[in-house]
Design a protein around this nucleic acid. Sequence first.
RNA 1: GGCGCCAUCGUCUAGUCUGGUUUAGGACACAGCCCUCUCAAGGCUGCGACACGGGUUCGAAUCCCGUUGGCGCUACCA
Length: 500
Amino acid sequence: MSTDPAAVRVRFAPSPTGFLHIGGARTALYNYLYAKKNGGVFILRIEDTDKDRSSLDSFLESITESLNWLGTTPDEGPVVTPREPGVIKDKGGFGPYLQSARQEKGIYKEALDRLVPSGGIYKCYCTPEDLKQRREEAVSKGLEPGYDGRCRDLTQKEKEEFESRGIKYAWRIKTPDEGVLSFDDMIRGKIEVEARMVSDFVIMKSDGMPTYNFACAVDDHLMKISHVIRGDDHISNTHKQMLIYGAMGVPAPEYAHLPQVHGTDGKKLSKRTGAVSVEEYRDMGYLPGALRNYLALIGWSTEDSQQIFKEDELVKKFDLSRCNTSSGIFDPQKLDWMNGKYIREEDPRNLAKMAFRWLNEAGLIDDTDNIPRVIDAIKLEQEKIESLKGIPELIDFLVKDDIKYDEKSVEKRLKKDGVKKVLEDVVGIFEKAPDFTVPGLEEAVRQYVEKEGLGAGRVFHPVRVAVSGRMKGPGLFEMLEFLGREKVLGRMKYAIDHLT
RNA sequence: GGCGCCAUCGUCUAGUCUGGUUUAGGACACAGCCCUCUCAAGGCUGCGACACGGGUUCGAAUCCCGUUGGCGCUACCA
């Protein structure tokens, strides 16, 4: 098509449902990736033609937050600043980006007016109740449930009759009675449907609000959207939108329909089968990079099935034509693995930064600026961290003064014959150790083990539990050095007196 | 019901368009082994799939038809 890369303009157009759904996030991501890959523009548009305005602010705030967190910040779209609640500004020159605001501006009315002279649309005076009844009748007779075209060819007299009775009308678009409606999907190829399957549909409701398909088509056109990348639940809408473009006499954008993301039960992702919003994943301690990477792989892959993508590698390698056609299931286990992978690769300083809220909650950050110490503790446990949220539990015994002794560990490693003597001996060794660092400590302890003719475990295990309160942890000597002589000795003596 | 979309290991997928290079490759999960002071991480091995039935062809996971199944749409919702 166009050779001008700047011509690529894509949009993510959610309706305000409270938060960014994981499936929506995937759609947003693919749009973002496609835009960046092609030097284009990623736009956020809110499809709120049917919602009340009350919850809009919080939705906007939440979706903006989620999009930013995921690293898919829109280039254009509505913007709210926390400092000015209720004030929605536009970023970009194609606003407003809220359909409710566009409606107030008269954009859809104007588009409709331009359509009237063509004769391709007409007023429909049927009431919703009539429509419903007729639809049910048709279905019960085994006929198509679509609109029967009753108002399509009303005479002038009939129209006047309706008007004089003050009956409200909606605007319908005339759809072809025969032939096929077809479009080329970038990832599925040609998608056709018999024209007669699409009956005259409403584009403007009797309350003056545009229907979804009309608003969508008008806005995509006005915002110069070049590619529409969305879920495949919109496939049948596409034929309708193409009809609208046809009536408007403007070219339609390119379309790419993504397969859906389902829950582990194979059904639509729902709270029943796990977390559904980006916010929830953030709050569970996932890294944004991990979620983004994972999401990218539901429905898209490289030729070599690459799993982990660094930095801008995703943008570089993303390719719409390599997208799948079949729906995928969101697998939390694989996300967990990926999250661990990202955590192991991450700089401990950033880990501490990202985990700040949980560190703080757990009381691991104090006012003595112990953050460097926390970072070092994270470094020691890094390979074991599964989520940001789990960090405090992993490092608290390294950072806090007081520790909790795990009952099972005490039972298994301390309350055994001979442990007391071993610990006392080791205390002696530690008191005499010239410096309290890994090499010296390790040598001294191993010498002791050999001299006593014990298995290493007979010494290592009790010391570990005495000092940390648990059986799991970093390498013993790394842990000892980190804790320092004073804490180590204090904890060991406590253990000797109370726990052996 | 009608229409549309989809169909490779339990899951994400490569391979399908351009049939042979495939005893169908990778990743997650699972099992075992190695490493090892614990837990992890890491390494190795194993388990495990072309939904079914016809056709076309010397040859089909790949092309065609049908069946079955899943999902979606069928609104003056988006």
